[in-house]
Structures are given as structure tokens and as C-alpha cells.
């Protein structure tokens, strides 16, 4: 049996194709490790908690409740959205929370594995994949809650509801891609994580999460260009059974994510040894 040969040396030239192939290959090979890590984290998270899964909803429900109150009490005047406002707000904050979690996921998971990254050689792509597994688990639970609201507020069943999981998958893809680009720098400097938390708060108001796109003005322009807008709107349209008006922009964004995700994976692969070197004194 021929032995696998590995060579470690300073890379002089970057072969994008070879790196991508290696990255995807490792991702495929590390399915068991990724699942094991995801299972470990999910189990550990819920075993030491009584409320368990409820914590996944607290943030989006809280945000939605604030806006429902603001709207109902007349504190702010929001334009009519065409669906019961609670469903509008809930669906928006829920998808938003999935997106934020996806952006944070690559960095968080890599950071959490710092201890073993500096000691053991394993396919690092497993960390990304386990992050995706965890996101899908959380999203699935959130989706159930969303479906419950759809029926509770009398929006009722639409066939398009069956497409919502795909839209959420797209949200995870978009978030992971963005997160992947921020990860290398974010692992070196803690500032990046803080900027993400801080920035996402503002970005939420530049995205039709809790209110619709205004008819005119600067905010309309920002929202129309914001690449998160089509993801939120399309998902919501599928939930409530409207025909998605941002579908083409949605497809463009997702189509752009695929090559960018590949680029991110290659960058991640190049970056990890450089980062491990700086982490381990």
C-alpha cells in the first residue's frame, strides 16, 4: 500500500484550484467529525440548561415584541405591510437572527477550537461544517415556531411555505460566506467580533426586518441595494404566500455567494496556519 506523502514548506505560488479541491475534499472527509462536534456542542448547550431551546427564540421574539408594541401603541407609524404585523415582525427578526448567527458562526467555531487547533492536525473545514450543522438545527426549530405563527395569526397555508427551507438555506449560505471573509482577521483581532455585533444592530434598520421599504428617500435607496434585503423579503414572501418581488436580485445574490464561498474557503485554508502561529505562543 502506497503511503500518503505530505510536504510542508513555504508556499511560493497559490494554486487556487488545488486548494479548493483539497478544501472541499477535507470537508467531505470530515463529515463525521463535523457532526460529532455539532452534536457535542448542541448536547452540551442543552444539558446544562432548563430552558434549553427557548433561548434560541428569546432574541428575535424580544425584538419583534418591542416593534409590535411600538406599532400598536402608535409610538411609530409604520406603513401597511399587507400581512398581520406580528407575522411580519416575527418572520423578519427570525430570519435576521439566522443570518446574524450564520455570519458569526465561522469565527465563533474556529475561535472555540483554538485549544485543539494549536495542538492537533485535523481538517479545519470540519469546524465550518459543524457550524453549518448547528445553524441548520437552530433554524429548523425557529422555522417550526414561524410556521406556528403563520397559522396562529390566520395567514394560513400556502404551497410556497414548502420553499421556505430553501430560502433559509440561502440565508445560511449568505451569512457563512460573509462570516468566512471576516474570520481570518477576526481571529487575530477581537475588534472584528465587536464590530460585527455593533454593525449588525445598525444594519438591521437598513434592512426591511421590522418595517417595509419606504416609498422614497435615502433609506429606500440603501434598502434597495442592501444584499440582505432580497433574502429577508423573499423568505417572508414565501412564508406568507406572496409572489416574491425581489426574486431576481435574490438569485443574483445567491449565485454570487457560491464563487465567493469558494474563495472564502481557500482563504480560510491559507489563513489557518498563519493564525495558529500567532495564537500559540
Amino acid at each position: 500500500m502506497a503511503l500518503e506523502t505530505r510536504v510542508y514548506q513555504k508556499e511560493r505560488t497559490i494554486k487556487f484550484g488545488a486548494l479548493l479541491k483539497a478544501s472541499l475534499g477535507d470537508m467531505l472527509r470530515s463529515r463525521f467529525l463535523a457532526r460529532q462536534l455539532a452534536e457535542r456542542d448542541i448536547k452540551a448547550q442543552y444539558r446544562q440548561s432548563y430552558l434549553g431551546i427557548i433561548w434560541a427564540f428569546v432574541m428575535p421574539i424580544g425584538t419583534a415584541l418591542v416593534w409590535i408594541f411600538l406599532n400598536n401603541s402608535g409610538t411609530v407609524r409604520l406603513s401597511d405591510t399587507g400581512v398581520p404585523y406580528p407575522v411580519y415582525a416575527f418572520s423578519g427578526t427570525l430570519i435576521w437572527s439566522i443570518m446574524v448567527a450564520a455570519i458569526n458562526s465561522p469565527m465563533q467555531n474556529t475561535n472555540a477550537a483554538k485549544g485543539i487547533l494549536t495542538k492537533i492536525n485535523f481538517p479545519k473545514e470540519a469546524l465550518l461544517l459543524s457550524g453549518v450543522y448547528k445553524l441548520l438545527f437552530d433554524s429548523f426549530i425557529k422555522l417550526l415556531l414561524l410556521v406556528f405563527f403563520v397559522f396562529a395569526f390566520g395567514v394560513g397555508f400556502h404551497w410556497s411555505l414548502l420553499l421556505v427551507p430553501f430560502a433559509i438555506l440561502a440565508a445560511v449560505l449568505f451569512g457563512t460566506t460573509v462570516g468566512l471573509f471576516l474570520t481570518p482577521l477576526g481571529l487575530l483581532y477581537k475588534d472584528i467580533g465587536k464590530i460585527i455585533t455593533f454593525g449588525m444592530q445598525f444594519l438591521m434598520y437598513a434592512t426591511p426586518v421590522v418595517y417595509a421599504i419606504p416609498d422614497a428617500g435615502l433609506m429606500r435607496t440603501v434598502m434597495m441595494y442592501n444584499p440582505i434585503t432580497p433574502i429577508i423579503l423573499t423568505t417572508r414572501d414565501l412564508v406568507v404566500g406572496f409572489s416574491p418581488e425581489f426574486l431576481s436580485y435574490f438569485i443574483v445574490v445567491i449565485a454570487a455567494c457560491v464563487p465567493l464561498l469558494f474563495l472564502g474557503l481557500v482563504m480560510y485554508r491559507i489563513a489557518i496556519p498563519i493564525i495558529v502561529e500567532r495564537l500559540s505562543a
Binding site: Y8, Q9, P273, S280
Partner: peptide, 13 residues
């Protein structure tokens, strides 16, 4: 294989 060398080469089979 955790970090890359700055010079030289390692070959492991």
C-alpha cells in the same frame, strides 16, 4: 503540519 515553516521543507510519508 499545524504551522508552516518560513524556510526549508518537511516531507512526511
Amino acid at each position: 503540519g499545524l504551522i508552516n515553516p518560513d524556510a526549508g521543507k518537511v516531507t512526511i510519508r
